[in-house]
Amino acid sequence: MNFGIFKTQKGLSILEVVIALAILGITVAAIISFQANVYKQSRSILQRSSLIRVVYSVQEDLLKDLESLPFRKNANFIQGAVFDQAAYRASFDDDQSIQACYDKEGQPIALTDEPVCEIRLSYYRVQEMDRNYDGNAVVQGTSFNYVPMSRLLMRIKFVDKATNSEKVYYLSRLKTHVLSF
């Protein structure tokens, strides 16, 4: 084979063009894949930032109104000294928890419109351990309000747009029922 052509002839060789096209093709494919990946990651980041904002603002709203929220009666696990994570998770059954649905701006959406539900929230209220001088837990009864502390328990569900999988977070907030006027 005569390789002199590569050494002496000016202009583009067919081989050069083929190699260049191959590299370009791979590069273009990489760009497309990269772009898709970045886009997916960005959506996930934006979604999560939005989620944090929404969750915090929803929490604050619920805390303000916590004293008029009924107590969950059967969440006795919460009174134990040892926190049982499995029981905690299991407590978020959809029959007794209050359900709420929010769009990505944190605006509530009717549960009947669930297909557009960006963040699904389940929450309920329990009495926090009452150390009221004898250290014994007050028996959970039918009353709707107790002194002095209660806890808001929340489960947040959303679909992570990066992985297209469901994410679940469990959060809680404490509230001391100090009267204000």
């Binding site: 970045v38 999560r48 944090i52 915090y56």
Partner: peptide
């Protein structure tokens, strides 16, 4: 760019952690 995006993703994880710390 990928490193940046990854760090931002890590940052969003940290935001969740920060939310928990704030709680």
């Amino acid at each position: 760019i990928l490193n940046f995006v990854q760090s931002r993703r890590g940052g969003s994880e940290d935001e969740i952690r920060f939310l928990q710390a704030k709680m």
